[in-house]
Amino acid sequence: MTKIGYARVSTTDQDLTGQVEALKATGCEVVREEKASGTTREGRSELATVIDFLRPGDVLMVTRIDRLARSIDDLRAIVREVADKGAAVKATEQPFDTGDIYGELTMNLLGVFADFETKLRRERQMEGIERAKAKGVYKGRPPKIDTDKVRELRDEGMGATAIAKEMGIGRASVYRVLDEG
Results as ranks from 00 to 15, higher is better:
111 G>H: 06
90 K>W: 06
66 D>Q: 09
166 E>P: 03
149 K>R: 15
79 V>D: 03
155 D>Y: 03
166 E>M: 10
93 E>M: 07
76 R>G: 09
92 T>W: 08
85 K>W: 01
70 R>D: 02
172 A>N: 12
82 V>F: 07
144 K>G: 12
114 A>V: 11
169 I>Q: 08
127 E>P: 02
101 I>Q: 15
123 E>I: 08
93 E>D: 10
138 Y>K: 12
156 E>C: 11
96 F>N: 12
167 M>N: 04
117 E>Q: 11
175 Y>A: 11
137 V>C: 05
101 I>P: 08
166 E>S: 12
139 K>C: 02
104 E>Y: 05
84 D>T: 02
174 V>W: 06
169 I>M: 13
75 L>C: 01
78 I>F: 08
100 D>S: 13
86 G>V: 00
178 L>T: 06
129 I>Y: 02
177 V>C: 06
172 A>C: 09
171 R>M: 06
98 T>G: 13
177 V>L: 04
134 A>D: 02
89 V>S: 09
72 I>P: 02
151 R>G: 10
85 K>I: 01
176 R>A: 15
120 L>K: 08
158 M>L: 14
178 L>V: 07
147 T>K: 15
117 E>F: 12
98 T>Y: 08
112 V>W: 04
119 K>C: 03
169 I>D: 09
152 E>S: 11
86 G>Q: 00
105 L>M: 15
166 E>K: 12
98 T>M: 06
139 K>A: 06
142 P>M: 07
174 V>R: 07
173 S>G: 15
109 L>A: 07
163 I>A: 00
163 I>H: 00
168 G>K: 00
73 D>T: 14
126 M>V: 14
126 M>L: 15
166 E>A: 11
66 D>P: 04
177 V>E: 01
90 K>H: 08
87 A>D: 13
139 K>S: 12
151 R>W: 02
172 A>T: 15
89 V>M: 05
110 L>C: 08
116 F>I: 07
125 Q>F: 14
159 G>K: 13
136 G>Q: 12
127 E>S: 04
101 I>F: 05
128 G>C: 04
94 Q>T: 11
171 R>D: 01
73 D>C: 02
174 V>E: 09
72 I>T: 10
121 R>E: 01
153 L>P: 11
105 L>D: 09
112 V>K: 06
72 I>F: 05
154 R>H: 10
149 K>M: 14
137 V>A: 10
126 M>Y: 11
108 N>A: 15
137 V>R: 15
96 F>T: 13
79 V>H: 03
140 G>M: 00
171 R>W: 04
129 I>M: 03
132 A>F: 00
78 I>K: 04
96 F>L: 13
141 R>D: 11
123 E>R: 12
97 D>N: 14
122 R>C: 00
90 K>D: 05
146 D>C: 04
103 G>H: 07
82 V>Y: 09
125 Q>N: 13
122 R>F: 00
104 E>V: 12
96 F>M: 14
145 I>R: 12
79 V>P: 01
170 G>E: 07
87 A>N: 08
109 L>C: 05
147 T>R: 15
173 S>D: 14
82 V>C: 07
68 L>V: 05
173 S>F: 14
107 M>I: 08
97 D>Y: 10
151 R>F: 03
133 K>Y: 03
176 R>M: 09
127 E>K: 11
136 G>W: 05
118 T>H: 10
89 V>R: 12
140 G>W: 02
95 P>Q: 03
156 E>R: 15
87 A>Q: 11
148 D>I: 04
151 R>P: 09
